[in-house]
Design a protein around this nucleic acid. Structure first.
Lengths: 197, 197
DNA sequence: TGTACATCAGTGAACGCGCGTTCACTGATGTAC
DNA sequence: TGTACATCAGTGAACGCGCGTTCACTGATGTAC
């Protein structure tokens, strides 16, 4: 009865979500047109609307997917300060700064999200809760209000440091922002539990 | 010879820069069209190009103006930890969160700036240097590398906390983000110099 | 003081273009007989 | 095994619209005489 195996259309949809994630993180939501998004996935214009209701539907789907992936990455880390250090080095690397398409969705898109639809903001909010929870666990400081505050602080400090390092034109300042962020993040991470070194 | 006093056109230009600053901070660069920008200043479409070369020229002008104003606000603060505290409370207030048009340009626009022209990024970079310098002075911790790192940390922590508080849909989480930012900012501000309370 | 003129800030219609979205269609495939 | 058919993922042209930008113009004003 069905022409293609049921996985076929699903695979195309997943490919769209993946390539759109990369495109949005490089060019922003407003800067990414349907023709480009669909072309990235090797399709043409009209195919879009058999996969998504609208551009906003794609944005919401991509935001949910991207932030969940980022949270999952943190959940997969071993607990403890050594692991935090390794994560910070990776997050605050020049490579991450120079490749937004492969990187953290919050750093690339956070201030655009506040201008998005309620559906998109809800998707982001769910992801933010999960992300904060994951950082609390990573810090291994118990489920205390203080641990929450520090987790939120790490989250925001990292996101904005990457944004600022990407915004400025001066390579020396950009590098300094990344290394300052590392030290400040360690200060916050260790502001109750002392670092292991 | 001249029809109007020379201040007349200058005043219109300044009005455009001011209203465009507010509009950009609410709706983003991409989300603000020329017709709207010019309408905000009480003009019609065609008047735009006798004041600015292009939309990008306006963006660059506005970014330079906005970040300089923000830096000037910090430069005007009295030095010391009590002053830092007062500034943090103001920056991290619900009012600032809920009124992006009146607020900090970095919080509203930082991740869009990395996608702007080199001219705009240069304007922002100049402002960022000045801002960091102003925070170093405000912290009154000497011109040491450590003071620089802490100043950068405060800058990024504040910006992203406001962004995150604006992005999330959940009022309780949003409030928590602001109060967490206050504590973490104080931790960074005081990470060498202890707070006065 | 009154009139003709030059200036030029601002008007508003028009330009080509790319946007998000729609839709009649194509053609590769699995199924039925 | 071979042929006719139904399915439906994907095509590509077209839609109205708002974008950034251009330009011929208007009309309020200060100056010249």
């Amino acid at each position: 009865m069905a022409r293609y195996a049921p996985e076929h259309k699903d695979a195309t949809r997943r490919r769209m979500i993946e390539t759109a994630g990369r495109r949005f993180k490089s060019d922003g939501f407003a800067g990414s047109g349907i023709a480009t998004l669909v072309g990235d996935a090797g399709l043409t214009n009209g195919a879009f609307y058999s996969h998504f209701e609208s551009k906003d539907d794609l944005i919401t789907t991509v935001v949910a997917e991207q932030i969940a992936a980022q949270a999952a990455r943190i959940e997969a880390l071993p607990v403890g300060i050594a692991s935090v250090e390794a994560f910070l080095r990776d997050y605050l690397s020049a490579e991450h700064r120079d490749n937004p398409a492969d990187g953290c969705p919050s750093a690339a898109l956070l201030d655009e999200i506040s201008r998005c639809s309620e559906a998109t903001r809800s998707a982001y909010t769910d992801g933010a809760h999960r992300m904060i929870q994951a950082i609390v666990h990573l810090l291994d400081a118990g489920d205390t209000p203080d641990a929450y505050d520090r987790a939120i602080g790490l989250y925001t400090l990292l996101v904005s440091s990457l944004q600022l390092a990407r915004a400025v034109n001066d390579p020396a300042l950009s590098d300094q922002i990344l290394s300052a962020a590392y030290r400040n993040a360690m200060t916050i991470a260790a502001s109750t539990t002392p670092p292991s070194r």
